[in-house]
């Protein structure tokens, strides 16, 4: 049976410029990720894993090659179209959670829904559903400063999934957490993949976190080094 690839990268290249000096980060990378996959991008610092994640998530643009995600060639979308595309197809999970400090957990999760046409009642239902999935319905009114790091990251995950995106991208989601909270967050992501069917693309240095993924992609100096299937 042919696989349904949700992400296709062809000869993707990305360079940064420091003055007149070109610094290549990705050099002609090809990658295909099927719908429902759980991939961990790994590699040493400067290998290009976060850059690749940003390009796939549509918050940066390649200097060469093409990226097709959810049936859209991202090169064809202008900035506003790309923003609209992100709001529908991608959920972001950041290392430092990046919750809005002046909004409580409910309001933080509701933020991406403000871009939809949903009514207030419909938004409320979706937020409660998302918070239930991360087991935080008892913390609706709490502000980020009133939550532990693990709880903050779970709120951030609820915010990422509330619009029901096709892909979740997570950049070092356990980087700021202790081992116990990290394990909880990784278990949650694993559940979202296996039970809800979310495609997850994860950048991590942590082998334990990467072990939760089904496939590990190792990058080295901007090129694909090897792909490893995780045996559990």
């Amino acid at each position: 049976m042919a696989l349904d690839f949700i992400i296709r990268c062809e000869a993707v290249a990305k360079s940064y410029w420091r003055g007149t000096l070109e610094i290549p980060v990705l050099q002609g990378l090809d990658l295909e990720i099927p719908r429902g996959g759980y991939y961990a991008l790994m590699g040493p610092s400067g290998s290009g894993k976060t850059t690749l994640l940003n390009l796939i998530a549509g918050i940066d643009r390649p200097t060469g090659g093409s990226i097709e995600v959810c049936g859209y060639d991202l090169n064809d979308l202008d900035d506003d179209q790309l923003a609209g595309w992100r709001s529908q197809h991608v959920g972001f999970i950041f290392q430092n959670y990046n919750l809005v400090p002046v909004l409580n957990a409910f309001e933080n999760v509701e933020l991406p829904l403000l871009l939809t046409r949903l009514s207030r009642r419909e938004r409320r239902e979706k937020v409660l559903e998302a918070l239930a999935l991360v087991n935080l319905t008892d913390r609706l009114e709490n502000y980020p400063r009133q939550l532990s790091g693990g709880q903050e990251q779970r709120v951030a995950i609820a915010r990422a999934i509330v619009t029901e995106p096709d892909i979740l991208v997570a950049d070092e989601p356990t980087g700021a957490l202790d081992a116990k909270n990290a394990e909880e967050v990784m278990a949650l992501l694993e559940r979202l993949n296996s039970e809800v069917g979310k495609t997850i693309l994860l950048v991590t240095h942590d082998p334990k976190a990467a072990h939760h993924a089904r496939i590990q992609i190792h990058l080295e100096k901007g090129v694909l080094d090897r792909t490893v299937e995780v045996n559990r």
Partner: peptide, 15 residues
């Protein structure tokens, strides 16, 4: 600055 970037990543347009 970071918060604005997060909003934009979530799909809020620049305008």
């Amino acid at each position: 600055t970071t918060e604005v970037a997060v909003f934009r990543a979530m799909g809020f347009t620049g305008s």
